[in-house]
Amino acid sequence: MSSNIENAEYQTQKEGHKDILLQTQDLSLVSGGRTLISNITLDVSAGEIVTVIGPNGAGKTTLLRLLLGLITPNAGIVFKKPKLRIGYLPQKIHVDPILPLSVSRIMNITGNYSSIQINNALEETGVVSLKEKPIFQLSGGEFQRVMLARALLRSPELLVLDEPVQGVDYMGESELYKLISNLRTRHGCGVLMVSHDLHVVMASTDRVMCLNQHICCEGQPQDVSRHPEYLKLFGLDSGSALAVYSHHHDHTHHISGTLLEDGP
């Protein structure tokens, strides 16, 4: 492990009651003369969902890899709660059909878990019926649910999810975010995830960080969605107010679909 990444003395006292799982200070990474990550200071506490959004090439995945200790920063420090158990879901994994792996086999690929534990985890993410299916036959959504179940097996205190809805259809996206939010409530774990779409992730996130090498703006999702830096970064500022997906509900639907007067 690198010397910059220390597990020691993470600062609980600073934030008072919050149980901080992971914290960084002025994290920077320069590679080949290009600044990939610059002066990132962030923290994630137990029970909260923090989402990092940013355009392609903003350094979202690089940031996660730094936090996980897969690469070493040029400057700055990563503090982790001692013996922090992390469940990681990397960006879309490509599984070649040449490799005969079933779902249940994937669950055991780095650890030894009993059949009961595996069933429970798959049950939680709603894919227990796929247990014996070959991995390469799964749809995008099914695969991500299997990978989430896999991460749960480690009874994680922190879930690190890199674009968890990649390859998932639009309906599946919000369901998957709902599932992630439920898992957070049930297990009390912190969640740090990367997304490219603020509006889909908005409902199930507590804090948003807008990343473009450095943190442009951060805060509650509603505030970030109106922040000029955010609008600029996603090219939503150039007068075309209509392009902004302003989501003002002026009516609501009954669960059956009929229109109700006077929304909340």
């Binding site: 890899r65 996980l68 897969l70 990397p90 994994i93 599984v95 490799l99 690929i109 780095t110």
Partner: peptide
């Protein structure tokens, strides 16, 4: 097992 794990995904294997 480690060989199989890095064949599946080496980032994940490294993270774990």
């Amino acid at each position: 097992r480690p060989l199989l794990a890095i064949t599946f995904d080496h980032e994940l294997a490294q993270a774990e």
